[in-house]
Design a protein around this nucleic acid. Structure first.
Length: 845
RNA sequence: GCGAAAGUGGCGGAACGGCAGACGCGCUGGAUUUAGGAUCCAGUGGGAUCAUUCCUGUAGGGGUUCGAAUCCCCUCUUUCGCACCA
C-alpha cells in the first residue's frame, strides 16, 4: 500500500508537482497518431462496412471557434466515434462557409482583401480545430470561396435556369443601408437586417430569383422527416404558411378592371362595405393618377411606403386610410363600395387588396368607426343578440347568415362551401390556396460572393454563360471599401465581355449570390470534394447520401435547412441524387449561455474555448459540454463544472495508472469455478449495467449527459471496490474487467484519454478500431432486489429479497413486515397490487 | 393575438405511470498537507426529532388511477416561432 502511494506520488510529481494528468502530452500524442494513421480518412472505395455520414453545420470563416462550435462539434464527434466503434465506415467532414458580407466587412475593417483575410482566418480556425482533436476527414475539406467550389454554384444556377427555376424581376426589396445589399424576406425579419440589425429600407431593384415556390408543396411534405425535431418541421410549416381561402373578384366601377381580393371568410361577403388597397397596389397608383386629389393621395401613399415597415406592421400602430374617390362593384350583389387605401394592408400577403367586413373583423370594425363607414351584420351569433348600435367589437365567430340573400339562414360553415361553389359557377371567384413563402431572391450587390453567370448583350438580351466557360472567376484585383457600392462595377476586365451567342459586346452581371446558395448543397460536395468534372459523382452520392446525422443550431430552420431541402429536391430532379431529403436525422443543439444569456461580445460574457483547452485539455471541455445537459438543450457555462469534468478524467487516469501493472496478472475472463464475493458480483453488475446504459443513451436518444453520469457512477463503484491479498480469483477477474471497459466507455466523450489508457492497459492500436462493448444479460440479474411496500400508494417499507419470489410469498412477507403492521392493523385489505420485481401496494380501507 | 415547448433542491440536471432529486457543481464536517491548492472519506430538498422515525415536497388548482414530476382539464410564469395574414 505504502509502496503504491510512493509510486503514484513519483508519477504525479513528474508532471509538474500538480496532481494532474498530463493532458497536454496525451492530447498532442494521439492527435498525431490519428493523423499519421489516417484513422478518420473515409474512402469512397467500396467496403463491407455500412456507411454513416455525420455532419455538423460548417462554421463561417470568422477566424475564431467559439464555445457554441465546440459544443456542436463535440456532439457530432461523440456520435462519429461511437459509430466507428459500432463498425460503421464513418465520414465526418469539415469545411468553411467563407463568402459573404462578414468576410468582406472584416477585410475592409483590417484594410485588407477578403481573399487574404479569409484564408488567414481559415488557417487560424484549422489550427484551433486540430487542437481539439475532432475526428474529421480533412482530405475532404470544402471552402466555398474556392473557385473549384463556386464553379458548381454557377453550374447549379445554370441548371436551374435551364429548368425554368431562375428569373429576373424588378421589385421592391428589403435593402440594408448598412450592408448596402438586398435581403431576402427571411433575412429581414422584424424589419431589421439579420446580420447587422440595421433598419431595412424598401428599394426597387432588378434582381435574380430562384423559384423555390415551385417546390412549396413538396417542402410542406414532412413524411420523410421523422428524424427531425417536430419543432423544426412546424417552424418550416408556419414559414411556408399555407392557408385556404377564396379569391373574390371585385371590379372597378366605371371600368372593366378587376380587383381580386383574398379572404378566408367568403361567408361574410354580403357584409363587405368597402375595400382597402395596400399603398403599393398597382391599381392604387392608377387610381391616384386619375384622381382630382392626386397630390394629397400621392403624399399619403409615399409617406406609408417610406415609413419603417416594422413600425407600420406593428400591432399598436394606428390604422389610417384615405378614400380614393372611386368605387368597386361587389360581384355578389352589384353593390358599389368605396375603395380606400390603408396602411394596414400589405402587398406581400394575399392580393394586396382586402374586402372589409367591419361587423365581423376587428381591424375593419375599428377602421369603419374611425372613418364613419357603413357596417352591416351578416352573421348572427348563437343567442341572436347582435345589434348594430350595441356592438363594441366585431363578432368574428361562427353563426347563422343574415342579410345575405339566398344564403340567409345557413350556418356559416355550410355557407362558405355553398358561396364558393356558387361564385365559381358564376365566375365571381374561386377557392384558392395561399402561401406565405416567397421566391428566393439571391442577388447581392456586393463583391465577395459567387458571380452570377449571366451576361447582358445589346443584341441578344440576357444570356447565360455557357457551361464550358465556368467558372466565371471573381476578380481578385479589387479594392473593397465601405463607401463604395459593388466594387465589381468598376472592374472593366470583368464587366466587359463578349456575348456567348453573337460574340458582340456584352456586359457581365455584377451581382453575386446569396451565401445561402453556397451552403445549400455543401453536404453533397463533401461526398466527392475534388471532382472537377461534376459537382459530385452519382456513385459517391449514392454511397453517402442522405446525411445520416446532421447537427446544428435551430436558428437555421427557415433559411439554410429549407434551402438545402429545396436544393436536394432539385438535384434529385436533374438526376444527381435519388433521395427526397438531404438528411434523415437532424439534431438542433442548444446554445452555450453564460449568466443565463447568450454569449456575445456586446454583453462581454464570451468565454474563449482556447483558454480552457490550454488549462484543462480538449477532453475536459468536451466532457463538460456534453455532461451539462442533453444536446438539444442550452448549456449553462460554469467554470466550476469544467473543473468537475477535469476531476473525473483525472480520477480515471489515476485509477488506471495505479492498477495497470497489477491487474495484468488478474484473470482476463470468467470461469465457473472461480469464487465471487457479493461485492464482486455487484461490481460486475455495475460494469455490464454501465455498458448497457451508455449504449442505450447514445443509441436511442443521444443523451450524453446521462451516459457520462453512468460512467461516473461506475468509476465510483470501481473506486470503492478493494482487492486484497486473499481476494478470490473471481473478484480479480471482475476488477480487471471493470477497469478495462473504461477506455471504450469514455472514447466518445474523452477520446484522447481513452486512447492513452487503452495503451496503458497494454492494448495495441487505436481503441477506435476495436468493436464497441457488449454486455451480458446474465450479469444483469441481481440476486437480491429492493422491493418496495406501499400502503395506499405511499412508501412504507422496503424488503431485500430474491427477484424470483412468487406473488404469494411477496404478499406474505409484506403483510408480515413490522413497519407495515401499524398501517394495516385492524383494517380491511381491499386490494393488493403487485408489480413483479418492483413493488407491492396494499390498499386498505 | 395565434401556435409550440417548458416549469423538479442553492445551481446544471436525473427519473418516459411504480423508492423524486441519479450524476456533477456548490456547501458542511473529517482526514491529509508547513501553508494555499489538490486529493480522499462522510453528509447534504424542507420541517419536526438526541435518536429510531414522522410530516411535507416536482409553478398553482382540479381530475383520472391502487399509485402521478410523468396522463387529462384550468390558471400563472418563462422561452421560442408566427403575426394589422385579410
Amino acid at each position: 500500500m505504502e509502496v503504491n502511494f510512493f509510486i503514484n506520488k513519483l508519477c504525479f510529481n513528474h508532471f509538474g508537482g500538480k496532481m494532474e494528468y498530463p493532458f497536454q502530452i496525451i492530447e498532442k500524442k494521439w492527435q498525431k497518431y490519428w493523423t499519421d494513421n489516417k484513422l478518420f480518412h473515409a474512402s469512397n472505395e467500396k467496403s463491407e462496412k455500412p456507411t454513416y455520414y455525420v455532419l455538423s453545420m460548417f462554421p463561417y470563416a470568422s477566424g475564431v471557434l467559439h464555445m457554441g462550435h465546440i459544443s456542436n462539434y463535440s456532439i457530432a464527434d461523440a456520435i462519429a466515434r461511437y459509430k466507428m466503434m459500432k463498425g460503421f465506415k464513418v465520414m465526418q467532414p469539415m469545411g468553411y462557409d467563407s463568402f459573404g458580407l462578414p468576410a468582406e466587412n472584416f477585410a475592409i475593417k483590417h484594410n485588407s482583401h477578403p481573399e487574404i483575410t479569409t484564408h488567414e482566418n481559415i488557417k487560424k480556425m484549422t489550427k484551433q480545430f486540430k487542437s481539439v482533436g475532432f475526428g474529421y476527414d480533412w482530405s475532404r475539406k470544402v471552402i466555398t470561396c474556392d473557385k473549384e467550389y463556386y464553379k458548381w454554384n454557377q453550374w447549379f444556377f445554370l441548371k436551374m435556369y435551364e429548368n425554368g427555376l431562375i428569373y429576373r424581376k424588378k421589385s421592391t426589396l428589403n435593402w440594408c443601408p448598412e450592408c448596402k445589399t438586398v435581403l431576402a424576406n427571411e433575412q429581414a425579419e422584424g424589419g431589421v437586417c439579420w446580420r447587422c440589425g440595421t433598419e431595412v429600407k424598401q428599394k426597387e431593384i432588378e434582381q435574380w430569383f430562384v423559384k423555390i415556390t415551385d417546390y412549396t408543396e413538396e417542402l410542406l411534405d414532412d413524411s420523410e422527416l421523422d428524424g427531425w425535431p417536430q419543432r423544426v418541421v412546424t417552424m418550416e410549416k408556419n414559414w411556408i404558411g399555407k392557408s385556404y381561402g377564396t379569391k373574390i373578384i371585385f371590379t372597378l366601377k366605371g371600368s372593366d378592371k378587376e380587383i381580386p381580393v383574398f379572404t378566408t371568410r367568403p361567408d361574410t361577403i354580403f357584409g363587405s362595405t368597402y375595400l382597402v388597397l395596400a399603398p403599393e397596389h398597382p391599381l392604387a397608383r392608377e387610381i391616384i393618377e386619375s384622381s382630382d386629389k392626386a397630390e394629397e393621395l400621392e403624399e399619403f401613399v409615399e409617406d406609408i411606403i417610406n415609413s419603417d415597415i416594422k413600425m407600420r406592421t406593428a400591432e399598436e400602430t394606428e390604422k389610417i386610410g384615405k378614400f380614393t374617390g372611386r368605387y368597386a362593384i361587389n360581384p355578389v350583389n352589384n353593390e358599389a363600395v368605396p375603395i380606400w387605401i390603408g396602411n394596414y394592408v400589405v402587398m406581400e400577403y394575399g392580393t394586396g387588396a382586402v374586402m372589409c367586413v367591419p361587423a365581423h373583423d376587428q381591424r375593419d370594425f375599428e377602421f369603419a368607426h374611425k372613418y364613419n363607414l357603413p357596417i352591416r351584420i351578416v352573421i348572427q351569433n348563437e343567442d341572436k343578440s347582435l345589434e348594430l348600435d350595441k356592438m363594441e367589437e366585431a363578432y368574428e365567430g361562427e353563426g347563422v347568415l343574415v342579410n345575405s340573400e339566398q344564403f340567409t339562414g345557413l350556418e356559416s360553415e355550410q355557407a362558405r362551401k355553398d358561396i364558393i361553389q356558387w361564385m365559381e359557377q358564376k365566375g365571381m371567384g374561386e377557392a384558392t390556396v395561399h402561401y406565405r413563402l416567397r421566391d428566393w431572391g439571391i442577388s447581392r450587390q456586393r463583391y465577395w460572393g459567387t458571380p452570377i453567370p449571366m451576361v447582358y448583350c445589346e443584341n441578344c438580351g440576357v444570356i447565360p454563360v455557357p457551361e464550358a466557360d465556368l467558372p466565371v472567376k471573381l476578380p481578385k484585383d479589387v479594392e473593397v471599401s465601405k463607401t463604395q457600392q459593388n466594387p465589381l462595377l468598376s472592374v472593366d476586365d470583368f464587366v466587359n465581355t463578349t456575348c456567348p451567342q453573337c460574340n458582340g459586346k456584352a456586359k457581365r452581371e455584377t451581382d453575386t449570390m446569396d451565401t445561402f446558395f453556397d451552403s445549400a448543397w455543401y453536404y453533397a460536395r463533401f461526398c466527392d470534394p475534388k471532382n472537377r468534372e461534376e459537382p459530385f459523382s452519382k456513385k459517391a452520392a449514392e454511397q453517402w447520401l442522405p446525411v445520416d446525422q446532421y447537427i446544428g443550431g435551430i436558428e437555421h430552420a427557415c433559411l439554410h435547412l429549407l434551402y438545402a431541402r429545396f436544393f436536394h429536391k432539385f438535384m434529385r430532379d436533374i438526376g444527381l441524387v435519388d433521395s427526397d431529403e438531404f438528411c434523415t436525422n437532424l439534431l438542433t443543439q442548444g446554445m452555450v449561455n453564460k449568466d443565463g444569456a447568450k454569449m456575445s461580445k456586446s454583453k462581454g460574457n464570451v468565454v474563449d474555448p482556447e483558454t480552457y483547452i490550454d488549462r484543462y485539455g480538449s477532453d475536459t471541455l468536451r466532457v463538460f459540454l456534453l455532461f451539462a445537459s442533453p444536446p438539444n438543450k442550452d448549456v449553462e457555462w460554469d467554470d466550476k463544472g469544467v473543473k468537475g469534468a477535469f476531476r473525473f478524467l483525472n480520477r480515471i487516469w489515476k485509477l488506471v495508472s495505479r492498477q495497470k501493472d497489477k491487474i495484468k496478472f488478474y484473470p482476463d475472463h470468467y470461469e465457473d469455478d472461480f469464487a465471487y464475493s457479493t461485492a464482486a458480483k455487484k461490481l460486475r453488475y455495475s460494469s455490464h449495467f454501465t455498458i448497457k446504459k451508455v449504449t442505450e443513451d447514445i443509441e436511442e436518444r443521444m443523451h450524453f449527459n446521462t451516459a457520462i453520469a453512468a460512467v461516473m457512477e461506475h468509476l465510483n463503484n470501481v473506486s470503492s471496490f478493494k482487492i486484497k491479498k486473499d481476494s478470490a480469483q473471481g473478484d480479480m477477474a471482475v476488477y480487471r474487467e471493470a477497469i478495462e471497459i473504461l477506455p471504450k466507455l469514455i472514447n466518445p466523450f474523452a477520446p484522447h484519454l481513452a486512447e492513452e489508457i487503452w495503451e496503458m492497459l497494454g492494448r495495441e492500436n487505436s481503441v477506435l478500431e476495436q468493436g464497441w462493448l457488449r454486455y451480458k444479460e446474465e450479469f444483469l440479474v441481481k440476486e437480491e432486489i429492493t422491493f418496495v411496500i406501499q400502503v395506499n400508494g405511499k412508501l412504507r417499507s422496503k424488503l431485500e429479497i430474491s427477484p424470483d419470489l412468487s406473488r404469494e410469498k411477496v404478499k406474505e412477507l409484506a403483510l408480515k413486515d413490522e413497519k407495515i403492521q401499524k398501517y394495516i392493523k385492524g383494517k380491511e385489505i381491499k386490494k393488493v397490487i403487485i408489480v413483479p420485481k418492483k413493488l407491492i401496494n396494499l390498499v386498505v380501507g
